[in-house]
Write a protein that binds this DNA or RNA. Structure first.
Lengths: 215, 215, 215, 215
DNA sequence: GATGAATGAGCGTTCATTCAT
DNA sequence: GATGAATGAACGCTCATTCAT
């Protein structure tokens, strides 16, 4: 029940269109100023609708946040598959997926930060749904990794953590934009990141030292 | 000017003690409920001081957030050096540093999330100061990496990105606690993460394929 | 002007039918929840018409209240004469009238309370009209009393106040339903009330004492 | 719990004074314009306090209504005993009690009407408390009646209904002020009412007819 | 004649901040 | 130096009313 958003208007295409306006404005403002600082009046003005109209399509402000976060997470989920659809070679698919995921994050840096900032403002059930959507996107990455392993291109690898390494790498571009943006382009970031994640770090001597450390 | 917090009380030891109470309460409440949801009243009650007293040591609510975030970032900065002070072997130092950084994050998950959620609520100058403190902590990690490279234990590596990989790995334990906590212990997480980050992922065949990809 | 309710629709039978629906729903909801708490939306839903339709037959919400109160008062006025039409003996007529008036109040307790609660929400002119309808009903009772006096069945009596005593007795069954309903049936209430109102209270000694008191 | 009103201020004499201001203003405005039409801003202005101050002493608007109704009911309860305290002769006490009760109603006609209009706006538990206060006042009247019966001044009488007859008589002066005020003074009303309620209405012939009616 | 999406004035309420004590 | 009662701007939200279809 609390996972669906009630509308006083029943016409589906109207709901879609109006909510589209409202949520787009909300994402923009939430991303820039934060959820609590943004007022319904701000959103109404930005979306070019009246306050009353917002409340025709949504029960309260929290609904707007919920819909905004869903939209953000869904947009990840839409872009990654599209980017890898035409690529079949496993390593190329992996690369395309990581690239696409970084690109989405780059295109909506504010939205990614928003998800980190405000998911906690949601009640537990709704937060869980957002998290499930994150996991669904993660699975797209994990599948690419598994394919590479199956194709003998990757060593046996800790898929769960490797997936998160990639996810955090992509998110870091948004979360630490203040650091990376002035230093490099997204393409540089991607190339350097891929190299970092795929190549060994330990020298043969380092390997031995590491083995001893773990005794 | 905006980088220092004004106090109406002048006695330094009083400032230290009172602010200590106030900021400890604030971190706790901000971490649990968020900055905007927490009221000055809440903080006063939790810190067992009056509302008026808070305003003797701070100009406004934002000052409290600023001091709280400084305290959080400083506490990272204090713990990591302490953990590696007695370790001299480079790889062991590296390992101890990562472990310590993860441990701090584990000990104050709420505070780490708080930093991600609310740094943006600060004006630019203050945000920069917080970011500089983050960079200072990062440099501790980077130094350990450089030492390992210098000692011939690590291959030449992209230090900037490797550092962030480690930082994000530690933060992920807090940011994605909903995912990791039910799956594994911090020790497991650390061991699996270290292995993932230090070992190669590409097979020889994978290496060739990767090289071709980058032509 | 303000005593008539404007309609945008001109067909009389349509006005009658639609207003019938609307007012019935309004009385029900006003009685249960009060005038201000009830919304036009509520009434529209209950009456199974659209909001727009209500405004075709009525200028504003206050018109609905006005029509609702008129309907309530008129319904008293319709029921009492019907109940005494076939009774000719004065005392029996009196008894039948009181009984009928109590019965109407019992049948629509909510409506009686509504009249007491919300008549004041009407502008002066309209309130006066409602009051005039109350007086018209009172006159039905007063006529019965006068007939009994004329027939030598009642002593000379203060008709104005006796009438109101009966009216308040009937209304009290609705206004103090929380008290009377759990204690007795309407028939008991009526029997005990009639006995109380018609019989003497003072003993001979009491009469003397009372006379002395008024010197 | 819902029967007590929470205050953010703890000093009892301050609570008493401030609530006194607020409730006096509220009774005045609720009586004149009704509960729902009166705004917190109106009350604040009338009470010469800020909006915020009202919410220091009360949790919400409904609390104000609750306190207002309690004050009204309590004021009945205070005045009636005071008026009969010095009178010992039973019939004189009865007369003084009725007179006092009517006088209180006359002094605060708006408040009496308010109680009739808005008690229903309270949640069940609070409504019950108000009703209990009404019953407590009724018992004062009932006691006077019983004393008169015990003293052999009144015939055996239906005390419950006689009490309500008197209560409704007093309330009617307020509820039907639009009718009585222009016709007579309160003293006339009282004298005529007492006479009506204490004297017999049936003639000997009427008594016989009445007996026959009840066969 | 019927509809219901759109509107925005205005409500109840909160809470950072001040300042007299 | 410490207190907390007082303040009022500004928030989220409602709902009577309108009008294009």
């Amino acid at each position: 029940m609390s996972l669906t958003v009630k509308s006083k208007v029943e016409v589906p295409e109207l709901i879609e269109r109006r909510r589209g306006q409202i949520i787009a404005a909300a994402i923009e403002l939430f991303a820039k100023n934060g959820y609590h600082v943004t007022t319904i009046r701000d959103i109404a003005k930005r979306a070019d609708v009246s306050i009353g109209t917002i409340y025709q399509y949504v029960s309260d402000k929290e609904d707007v946040l919920f819909l905004a976060l869903i939209e953000v997470l869904d947009s990840y989920q839409r872009h990654v598959p599209a980017a890898i659809a035409s690529v079949s070679e496993p390593l190329a698919r992996f690369h395309a997926a990581v690239k696409a995921y970084c690109a989405v994050n780059d295109a909506m840096i504010g939205a990614t930060v928003l998800a980190y900032r405000e998911t906690k403002s949601l009640p537990k059930m709704r937060r869980k749904l957002i998290q499930e959507k994150e996991l669904a996107t993660n699975r797209l990455i994990a599948a690419c990794i598994n394919d590479c392993v199956a194709a003998g291109l990757f060593e046996e690898v800790d898929v769960e953590l490797f997936t998160y390494q990639i996810v955090m790498f992509a998110h870091a571009w948004a979360l630490k934009a203040w650091r990376f943006r002035p230093m490099m382009t997204l393409d540089d970031y991607l190339a350097r990141g891929i190299r970092l994640m795929l190549n060994p770090k330990l020298t043969p001597r380092g390997k031995k030292a590491f083995a001893k450390l773990n005794d």
